[in-house]
């Protein structure tokens, strides 16, 4: 699992208003075009940013989902959820 597709979903959400709207309207349908693992898709649909972070998704990109308020996320929800994750201490 490369988690590349998760990062791509988050990037497109922030940068492509049309895609962000489709992701908001019908998340499962909007995600069909991405090569996601089942575990990644489930976590995205659940707005489980802590799980996505644990899989290796980049948190800067994940926060874009909250900025666009899709997948049940907004900034307070994002904050509550990401703070439950174990920090990655890689550099």
């Amino acid at each position: 699992m490369s988690v590349y597709a998760v990062n791509l979903v988050a990037r497109r959400t922030l940068r492509d208003p049309d895609f962000a709207r489709r992701l908001g309207d019908d998340p499962a349908l909007a995600l069909e075009q991405f090569d996601l693992e089942e575990e990644e898709r489930d976590a995205l649909l659940a707005g489980d940013v802590a799980a996505l972070y644990a899989m290796g998704a980049h948190e800067y990109l994940l926060m874009g989902l909250a900025r666009r308020e899709v997948l049940g996320l907004d900034l307070p929800t994002y904050s509550d959820r990401i703070r439950t994750a174990e920090p990655r201490l890689d550099y």
Binding site: A50, Y53, E59, Y60, L62, M63, L75, P76, Y78, S79, D80, I82, R83, T84, A85, E86, P87, R88
Partner: peptide, 13 residues
């Protein structure tokens, strides 16, 4: 600085 990661403050990015 921690941005958008687990070590953010409650309610802040």
């Amino acid at each position: 600085q921690e941005v958008a990661g687990p070590r953010i403050r409650p309610g802040r990015p």
